[in-house]
Design a protein around this nucleic acid. Structure first.
Length: 873
RNA sequence: GGGGGCAUAGCCCAGUCGGUUAGAGCGCUUGUUUCACAUACAAGAGGUCACAGGUUCGAGUCCUGUUGUCCCCACCA
């Protein structure tokens, strides 16, 4: 046996991980003898560093995958990273600017991409190494990157197929534009934050000089692009104005007053200025009324030539100027303070502009329909189910997805345009010349939304579009594990992509977890500086402790707070396991026979019964992804039952000097310990493997061992009950000692009137060891006892302890009275319950019988206690 | 505007098909350096399960409403 240190020290974790890697235990291969179980890792961004969110996400996945592996599945957990188009590009641009004062334009596309790949080489590996420290059992031989050759092939394949089916189109639409990143964004990439601003009221005069109409706006500068004013057709105040023309202030443009339901009668003045080029609603309204679209803001967020004298100004600067000019020229009616939501770029925080621009879009309606059906028909199940609502709400109201990005880092759009005739060709490879006129063709400059490639992740990582064994064996995958904040970005898009491309949903279950918050419930973020570095926690407490602290007390879909106290208590639990194991292992002698004992004693039968129940429950919990419940059960069983009771009960046998008894005890201890190690392994893989290696047969590896099975041959309900009663008795004696101030070390004598003499004679040794009873005298009748005693009454026995001078009659009377009151309250409650005819007739018979038995016990206990009290008076 | 979560011990949270004495952890009180572990052991205190109704033999759990709180979506200028 290896020597084990007194205190658990997690420094062996790296050694264990290397051992697993060397053994290739993480690798999965198509195997027709086994059922596959597949998880696709949500690929972290190459720019990312491991944070607590990753730690939680990967801990959950690893628990599931290790559990399934031990349960006999061919388990594939496929890891990888995401090129994170915009996030990475933003970082590289920042770095170039800071370090060299260079811009993208300075270096050019080719050199920029070289830098990006260099960045990927340098930082893409960083997060992978960090993941390994957590103990993740992914198949690293299949590690993927969204811009790998074959994954890029999948992207092109998907784009071309969508295009040919008419599901991808190019057109002028209003899109979200980030003036800082200088790219289009999808709706999902815009976050809204409330800002304090004003509502400006301006008078637009009628062209014929007769009166004016007042409009209210939050964006005065866009008035330069106004092409109409709209009113509600039902608005009686406005009806006379419809069809009349207005003279747009600061310009010489004449614009109409149009009627449209979009305008809310009660808001503002009831008249809205319409800027089709810079507002999504105005754009739609403009289409309905065939209004001109006049762009006044350019890609940099500056006013363009259509803005007349304001040309070249930044849009915020222009706002000031326009506000000033309108006031000077007498158009201002009033200004009211107003709070409203402003869209910001999810990557850089810049205020997003709505701009009309030519972009590529995915037509969503035809894709959304089958994706909705798949969830409705439970082909894909969300856990917890309430997230289906979020999903439906999004899918049912979805607009077309803008997928082109004016960036360089990403998958270039496989579209070519003819220099001469403008013909568009979408193909997997570059056309040599224009099929129409033979002219030269150039490729679209833009790249695809990074989420376009992530949407294909469940099959692109398995080699699609190449037909191969991995793809047919491991697809569709089993469960996707992710936080709720990414359902729209990723989960929804994987579902429709999988259905469209593979004709099969990408996964049958989506396990949603929450976010890791700080001790005060705040979201951890870099800017707030309240993030905790998981790597530091691993250094201090070990990966096992971090994992267990994240796994315990969590419920699917709910956020969890992380505190240092929590990880400390988990570390303490691991230390407990370490020391319990150390105790077991150091008691194993070379000549001990460790085979399972043929004759079991009462304590054995009790712990085996409890173990079976735990195996059963934990297996059910894990199959239902109830990770927090499973963890709590194991914590409790290991500590409160195995350590606190079974190990203590094994000591008399271990120290008896009887070789056979010693063998028996260590055989049982190692048997239960092994089961515990297996059950805990998914949660704390390192320490369980390490402990197991100290005593397991050579070559036996815990992580690929078999998951414990419920064995009804080792379930003993009668003994379980007897032992529960014995435990109760021991606790009651300890309690009595504490109350009567009996010194800890003092052995007392006890008269015993047992309920089951045979059982108690066997169990008497535990009273001595665990309750400090030095001498047990079995008596049939209390008349045999002459001394003054303190009485403890339980279902297992009456225990009468003479304490000599320490017996204080008054104190004992008080104590007994309290006990009697408790017992009588119980009797009263149960009598009431059982006198309820409806309960007796309608409740399950088993429950009623149980309550009857409880009543009988409580009555007996109360009677005995009263007798004792009587005797003292 | 629409949707959802949460409200349980001093604190932070579990609580599975509704089952009758509501559980951990931390903290608190008391005692213990006992031969696996003081990162420990033993004993204990501490709860009107937000509030009001309802369904049920039985409700922390299901339904309705109220209050408080957090989040997501939409974006009425």
């Amino acid at each position: 046996m290896d020597k084990m240190e007194k205190t658990y020290d997690p420094s062996f974790e790296k050694r264990i991980y290397d051992f697993w890697m060397k053994g290739k235990y993480f690798e999965a291969h198509p195997n027709d003898e086994k059922e596959p179980f597949t998880i696709m890792m949500p690929p972290p961004n190459i720019t990312g560093q491991l944070h607590m969110g990753h730690a939680l996400n990967h801990t959950i996945q690893d628990i599931i995958i290790r559990f399934k592996r031990m349960s006999g599945f061919e388990t594939l957990w496929l890891p990888g990273t995401d090129h994170a188009s915009i996030a990475t590009e933003v970082k590289i641009v920042e770095q170039m600017k800071e370090q060299e004062g260079l811009t993208k334009a300075d270096v050019g596309r080719e050199e920029f991409l070289e830098r990006a790949w260099a960045w990927k080489e340098k930082y893409g590996g960083r997060i992978v190494e960090q993941l390994k420290r957590l103990g993740t059992s992914c198949d690293w031989s299949k590690e993927a990157f969204t811009m790998d050759k074959n994954l890029s092939a999948a992207v092109v394949d998907a784009f071309v197929r969508y295009y040919k089916k008419g599901l991808i189109y190019r057109g002028d639409r209003i899109i979200n534009w980030c003036p800082h990143c200088k790219t289009a964004l999808s709706d999902a990439e815009v976050v809204y934050n409330e800002q304090q601003s004003n509502l400006w009221y301006y008078r637009y005069p009628f062209a014929d000089g007769d009166g004016y109409i007042t409009i209210a706006t939050t964006r005065p500068e866009t008035m330069l692009g106004d092409t109409a004013v709209a009113v509600n057709p039902k608005d009686e105040r406005m009806q006379a104005y419809v069809g009349r023309m207005l003279r747009l202030p600061l310009t010489d443009r004449i614009i109409p007053v149009v009627a449209d339901d979009y305008v809310e009668i009660g808001f503002g003045t009831g008249a809205v200025k319409i800027t089709p080029a810079h507002d999504p609603n105005d754009f739609e309204l403009g289409l309905r009324h065939d209004l001109p679209v006049i762009r006044v803001i350019d890609d940099e967020g500056r006013m363009n030539e259509n803005a007349g004298k304001y040309c070249g100004m930044d849009r915020l600067e222009c706002r000031k100027a326009v506000v000033e000019d309108l006031e000077k020229q007498g158009y201002l009616e009033k200004i009211e303070p107003y709070a409203h939501n402003v869209g910001e770029c999810y990557r850089c925080g810049e205020t997003v502009e709505a701009i009309v621009s030519k972009q590529w879009f995915v037509k969503m309606k035809p894709l959304a329909e089958p994706a909705i059906k798949a969830v409705r028909s439970k082909k894909v199940e969300f856990i917890p189910a309430r997230f289906e609502k979020t999903y439906f709400n999004w899918m049912e109201n979805i607009k077309d997805w803008c997928i082109s990005r004016q960036l360089w880092w990403g998958h270039r759009i496989p579209a070519w345009y003819c220099d001469d005739c403008g013909e568009t060709v979408v193909a997997k490879t570059a056309p040599e010349c224009c099929p129409k006129c033979g002219g030269h063709m150039h490729q679209d400059e833009d790249v695809l939304d990074t989420w376009f490639s992530s949407a294909l992740w469940p099959f692109s990582t398995l080699g699609y579009p190449r037909k191969n064994k991995n793809l047919s064996y491991f697809y569709p995958t089993s469960v996707l594990v992710t936080a709720y904040d990414i359902i729209f970005f990723w989960v929804a898009r994987m579902i429709f992509s999988g259905i469209e491309m593979m004709h099969e949903v990408p996964f049958s279950e989506v396990l949603i977890h929450g976010l890791v918050r700080d001790a005060n419930g705040k979201k951890m973020s870099k800017s707030a500086g309240n993030g905790i570095d998981p790597l530091e926690l691993i250094d201090t407490y070990g990966a096992d402790a971090l994992r267990f602290s994240l796994a315990t007390g969590i419920a699917p879909g709910s956020d969890t707070r992380f505190t240092v106290g929590k990880i400390e208590s988990c570390r303490n639990f691991i230390n407990k396991l370490w020391n319990a194991s150390r105790f077991v292992i150091m008691n194993v002698n070379d000549d001990d026979d460790l085979s399972f004992p043929t004759r079991l004693n009462g304590a054995d039968k009790w712990i085996l019964t409890r173990l079976n129940d735990v195996v059963k429950d934990v297996t059910i919990n894990l199959n239902k992804y109830e990770i927090g419940l499973a963890a709590a059960k194991l914590y409790d069983f290991t500590w409160s039952e195995f350590c606190d009771w079974y190990i203590e009960m094994s000591k008399p046998m271990l120290y008896s000097g009887d070789k056979k008894a010693h063998s028996h005890a260590v055989a049982m201890l190692t048997y239960v310990l092994t089961a515990i190690l297996k059950l805990l392994h998914p949660f704390m893989p390192f320490i369980t493997e390490e402990i197991y290696s100290k005593y397991a047969p050579k070559g036996s590896v815990l992580m690929v061992s078999e998951w414990p099975a419920y064995n009804k041959k080792t379930v003993f309900r009668k003994e379980e009950k007897s032992f529960e009663a014995l435990r109760e008795t021991i606790v009651a004696v300890r309690n009595m000692r504490a109350e009567m101030n009996v010194p800890v070390g003092k052995k007392v004598k006890a008269y015993l009137i047992p309920a089951d003499e045979k059982f108690m004679r066997q169990a008497a040794v535990y009273l001595e060891k665990l309750a400090g009873v030095g001498e047990v005298v079995f008596v049939a009748d209390k008349s045999e006892i002459a001394e003054k005693t303190v009485a403890v009454v339980t279902a297992a026995a009456e225990v009468l302890v003479p304490l000599g001078d320490m017996v204080d009659t008054e104190k004992e009377k008080d104590r007994l009275s309290k006990e009697i009151a408790k017992a009588e309250a119980e009797v009263k409650r149960l009598k009431q319950l059982l006198s309820n005819k409806a309960f007796v007739s309608k409740a399950p018979q088993k429950l009623v019988d149980g309550e009857r038995e409880k009543l009988a016990q409580a009555e007996e206990r109360a009677a005995k206690l009263k007798e004792k009290l009587h005797a003292l008076e």
